[in-house]
Design a protein around this nucleic acid. Structure first.
Lengths: 203, 203
DNA sequence: TAGAATCCGGACCCTTGGTCCGCTTCAACG
DNA sequence: CGTTGAAGCGGACCAAGGGTCCGGATTCTA
């Protein structure tokens, strides 16, 4: 519905203005909860109608912001050099992916929080989650001796959920420099194929 | 504030009625979102005022339901026999704890969902989360060669988050009999001390 | 410049959590 | 029992926020 590109310059200008205003508001305000649509409209110097026509609803606005921020990372993953790019061996790429996600969430705490937790429907229905999951699952599948790659992918992603990251960074005051190796260490432990319990140990 | 015990039998009766009605509604209705406080009041044959006086707010009602359901498990953990009770060796108790949590969430999907995700504030501020986390952390700490027990506890708990469980059970149609071993297997992998990276390997 | 299509924007609607207060009910006591 | 005052009851009411609507302004096309 609201995905049409308009050629009118006022429409374009307003869309930009809204995006910029929302971005500012979400990073400034403490909780994403208290950024209302009316706030965004006012900050952008625009009426609510404009805002809703451009983005459909609250989730649409969040999604637009999110995608914009995510774009560089996505690009680095799809067509970039190692350790994120597709040429990386799975054992190294999985930690790299999760580290990238973690850093992204750290850099966009409020926004990620608003998108993942705000609104009624679960984050697992968002199609961007679906993308992360199938990518991670595919990479995990290339690691021999690792069962349940779908489940594992879900759990690894759960380790980088916005509200957990927010809690660790905000409440527990864990700085990024400690959090990244903790996650990396955890991922390593998960990936370490245990020689004791192998089905595929022979050959 | 609303935690006082009343001795008046109408108050007690109404509290029970509300609890029962809420329980029914939450298990019946698809999404916890569309169980409104007015619904609960109506179903209990009670006014909204009564409901709010008894439980303070929506979260209070949810918490009350949750605690009631959780009671047996908590008891089994605190003073029960292995594998849940305190006499269990850490290596076996951690998987048992997580399995219990998983089963609980499976048995109380809607309720757990409503409590964990519904409402603005993150699940990490709830004090019942704090309880799970410190217990799990304490047990993990007794496992030699396992660093970052706090972080690990968070991540393991994240693996049993209500909306993830709901997604796996609902969307991906994974039956409980497959999900439990998947989680167990994952936990095992995490706990398996890797002999290569030990600090405490001597003595 | 005329005309049509598009867009603007703020008044308006609706749902929902939460409050308020006059009336009712309970239980303690004479 | 009957009285009485404290506690509880319940539904009308309030505020906030997401989302809609439509008369009027703006922009593109000819």
């Amino acid at each position: 519905m609201p995905e049409r590109q308009s050629s009118r310059k006022d429409a374009i200008r307003n869309r930009e203005a809204v995006l910029a205003a929302a971005d500012t508001l979400f990073t400034r305000r403490e909780s994403p909860e208290d950024v209302t649509m009316a706030d965004v409209a006012a900050a952008a110097g625009v009426g609510k109608g404009t805002l809703f026509r451009a983005f459909g609803d609250r989730a649409g606005l969040l999604r637009a912001l999110y995608e914009a921020r995510l774009e560089p990372i996505r690009h680095a993953i799809e067509t970039g050099p190692p350790p994120l790019g597709p040429a990386t061996p799975p054992h190294d790429r999985v930690p790299a992916l999760l580290d990238a996600i973690l850093c992204f969430k750290l850099d966009n705490r409020r926004l990620a929080l608003a998108l993942e937790e705000g609104g009624g429907s679960s984050p697992y229905r968002a199609e961007h989650y679906e993308r992360w999951h199938s990518l991670l699952r595919a990479v995990l599948e290339q690691i021999p001796g690792l069962a349940d790659s779908g489940f594992t992918a879900h759990v690894l992603l759960a380790a980088t959920r916005a509200d957990l990251v927010e809690h660790l960074a905000g409440e527990e005051r864990i700085p990024r420099e400690r959090m990244r190796p903790q996650l990396a260490n955890f991922v390593t432990r998960v990936l370490a194929a245990d020689p004791l319990q192998g089905f595929t140990t022979e050959e």
